[in-house]
Design a protein around this nucleic acid. Sequence first.
DNA 1: TAGTATTATGTAAGCGCTTTCATTTATAGC
DNA 2: GCTATAAATGAAAGCGCTTACATAATACTA
Lengths: 335, 335
Amino acid sequence: MATIYQVSELAGVSLATVSRVMNNNARVSDKTRDKVLVAMEQLGYRPNSIAQSLASSRSNSIGILVSELHGPFYGEMLTGIEAEFRAAGKHVIIAAGHSERATEEEGIDFLRSRSCDALILHVEAVTDQYLIELSKKETPFVLLNRQVAALAERCISLDNELGGYLATHHLLQQGHRHIAYIAGPMWKTDARDRFHGHQRALAEYQLTADDALFFEGDFRETGGSKGLQWLLASGRPFSALVCANDEMASGALTAARELGYEVPANFSVIGFDNVNFAYYTYPKLSTIDYPISAMGQMAARWVLQQVYQQSSIVVQQVFSPHLIPRDSVAEALHT
Amino acid sequence: MATIYQVSELAGVSLATVSRVMNNNARVSDKTRDKVLVAMEQLGYRPNSIAQSLASSRSNSIGILVSELHGPFYGEMLTGIEAEFRAAGKHVIIAAGHSERATEEEGIDFLRSRSCDALILHVEAVTDQYLIELSKKETPFVLLNRQVAALAERCISLDNELGGYLATHHLLQQGHRHIAYIAGPMWKTDARDRFHGHQRALAEYQLTADDALFFEGDFRETGGSKGLQWLLASGRPFSALVCANDEMASGALTAARELGYEVPANFSVIGFDNVNFAYYTYPKLSTIDYPISAMGQMAARWVLQQVYQQSSIVVQQVFSPHLIPRDSVAEALHT
DNA sequence: TAGTATTATGTAAGCGCTTTCATTTATAGC
DNA sequence: GCTATAAATGAAAGCGCTTACATAATACTA
């Protein structure tokens, strides 16, 4: 592999000049630039990015920590991030945190030790305090999908409350008045926010959430099926069901079928997230779209702006979800 | 950030000694080692991985090129890869190739310029010739899910022929004798291999594939729905349908429902890949499992063995698929 | 055309490590 | 106690770049 030194020799200029044409910011005369370019071409020269990083103390790498690499959600997120950085000549190092505190912290440590210029974190298990401590260290980071008041300017998140509102509002508009709710784990902010949105929508119709129609699930499929069984067993009638995410909605759909109910004939179901498989369920799941790819892209832009000084970039911090009506919600028969 | 120099000073030893304890291979007396360890601890020292890379000419990074970051397939693959490397202290740089030749080549270039020690490639659009050329350059690579004869020792792939065989064999065992087939693009090796497996299974029952029951799809959902329509329109009766992947199977399932058919009552359907949403379709899709996560992990091991000399590792190059029977296949009514 | 302001290029000192080779210190044999 | 050998440590030369800072070349002014 040719080095900058050989290029400088062949072109008959100094190292510094070659370096200048590479980072084509500095002023070099056209003549010299051409000579250098020709020499590079001739030698098939490729700069050694490691040496560049060491000398400039910029690694041009961004660490991404997600909960999982598989699953319908994170792939979309990574897509947005990778595309944005690739175009900017930065590269992306990934690590998985598996929603466990120790693994998440370890992943962050791993990424930091890799000399990342910045981090994009999608963490669930580490504490706010940990993140606040982290913010005092040298590596800058953005938080995706998490709100920490003290770190507000580094958070990119979805308006979950609005999403919860939209879901229930849609059901209300279809004439439903008895609406069951399967929530996510209520210690998670997003689960709580979605539920608050639900309550707000109900309030607009002078309704309040019925405790007998509330079940706290786990954001997994089984949470949905167990939740539905519990709701049905409670004996309290309902004509529609809000699930705080699509996995649980899918579980509910399957359970309903197995118990002999038809959706949406017997009751409507709405999910949240609009993950890819929502389209493959039967009936196709009405849900709330979570623009996660766009949000990932925005996190990347935050980094470009804050860390690489690409000042022209505008960052949007809060995203709005919207309704995706499909086949799992129908009009209520009796209001 | 503390440097090795400060550690050496505090511990009262030379740089070399500190470096030795870091890479704990060289022989250092226990006393000195402890002194150094204490100094490191005290300074909160973390080695600068960039400097390490430059000096040792090993970046400890592996580039991964996948077609897409989202979708049900690549996430699984990345999971296997990341876990394996993370445990080995290596890190993973990702790029997407979008199944387009130019983008794939560009991605490979990008990764190479990032000083990766090795590459794991899941490429579809670049030519064999390009890969053969690439193999002459310094960066080693493995191919996932692609067979290039000249590069056989670098290929990790699935026995697609066997998978195709298993799918059709299952149908035959259930008594089906008139089996339709929706293939992938036949220029792709895996699509062809799967079809060959189908033919072999038929041959065992003294049957041959019926041209009127064959449709070449595109591995996308629409390919499945169009394919089913075409097959139905052809008027040739069939009691079972093999789809060369799950997306197309899902498309077929949806189309069947819309056209008033019931699966598996009217005809059985089997897919291929066992992507996550196969579980969410209705009826749940019987399919052939593609152990992509394990294959990703194996690709990582190949790198660990070949590039990082971890000789204890054993690499398996060809993987076998197996049948996942679910609800979309039923016994044939009349044999 | 001398004198000054610009612009282009070169010199050389790092960046924070690894690693070879030389040197020092400990261990053993007699 | 004195050499012969092995083990532990240090000195220093890079790895391939970037980037002050110094210097040379050119353009501009009066």
